[in-house]
């Protein structure tokens, strides 16, 4: 198990370094179009070949990782924070607080997000830069994707409030914020961490799907999601294995997160 954790940590450190030093590692700019070499096979000049417009695939993967692996965790953190806040409030205080929070959660789960997102996109100005568009996209995902996690946190908090050690703590005079900080939050940490890690790949994939609505990352900025979208037809029509690398990167990073998560769970 220790070996797996070391490998997972190595993958994440490597991914982090790659995203930070993308501009030094990339053989070319992610937006530069080598128009004489569209859809080229791997070569010394382009180690992962080029995309449909002749852009270096390695450069796009490195920058895509930067966008997705930095912003998806931020969106997941935002989503987990909201889930912890609403779910925690509902589970801890019960009564009308729980009813209001549950209503809010149900409302967020029931709203047709597709149409809401289309409306949000229609309301956004058109002259935003690709960087702004990607931040807005992940911000929206973080703000909208908390409801399912909140239910889990709510159930966990409710169970904790009924546990003997919490009764004991309350009998000893712990209440309010002190009770939450010292007894509930440490015990909810595993559930919160799980929701956080689970959200990351979900948001990366969601960003790719939002691209179809015009909400994803704008050209020419790449993201893991937009790179996954590009390989869709290769998966169905032909096998050019190197083009699947973004998919393997996503799997490797998410698996590494999960491996470390298990350790966190064991500790918790």
């Amino acid at each position: 198990m220790k070996g797996i954790r070391i490998a997972a940590a190595a993958v994440l450190v490597m991914a982090f370094l790659v995203t930070v030093f993308a501009q030094f590692l990339a053989p070319a700019g992610y937006e530069h179009q080598f128009r004489d070499q569209p859809e080229a096979r791997p070569s010394l000049q382009h180690p992962l070949g080029t995309d449909q417009l002749g852009r270096d695939s390695l450069a796009r993967l490195l920058y895509g990782m930067r966008v997705s692996l930095l912003l998806a965790p931020l969106a997941a953190a935002l989503s987990t924070l909201l889930a912890g806040l609403v779910g925690g409030l509902a589970g801890c205080f019960g009564g009308w607080t729980e009813r209001v929070c549950t209503l809010l959660i149900d409302l967020f789960l029931a709203v047709p997000w597709l149409f809401l997102l289309i409306t949000v996109r229609a309301a956004l100005p058109l002259d935003i830069s690709p960087a702004q568009s990607v931040v807005i996209t992940f911000l929206l995902l973080g703000m909208l994707g908390w409801a399912a996690s909140a239910r889990v946190i709510c159930a966990g908090a409710r169970n904790l409030m009924r546990s003997e050690f919490v009764w004991s703590a309350r009998a000893m005079g712990f209440s309010g914020f002190r009770l939450i900080r010292l007894h509930l939050l440490p015990n909810l940490r595993g559930a919160l961490a799980a929701q956080f890690w689970i959200s990351i790949p979900v948001f990366i994939i969601a960003e790719a799907n939002l691209g179809a609505l015009g909400l994803g990352v704008a050209e020419p900025l790449p993201s893991l999601g937009s790179l996954l979208k590009e390989i869709q037809e290769f998966v169905t029509l032909r096998s050019e294995s190197w083009r699947l690398l973004p998919l393997f990167v996503l799997i490797a990073v998410v698996s590494a997160f999960q491996a470390l998560l298990n350790r966190e769970k064991v500790r918790a």
Binding site: I118, A218, P220
Partner: peptide
């Protein structure tokens, strides 16, 4: 994306925005 790159050569910045068809 290609027009965006072409117009950059004459100093014009283009933002490409994809929208669903009804919007």
């Amino acid at each position: 994306a290609m027009i965006q790159e072409d117009l950059k050569k004459i100093g014009i910045k283009v933002n490409v925005v994809t929208l669903d068809f009804s919007s």
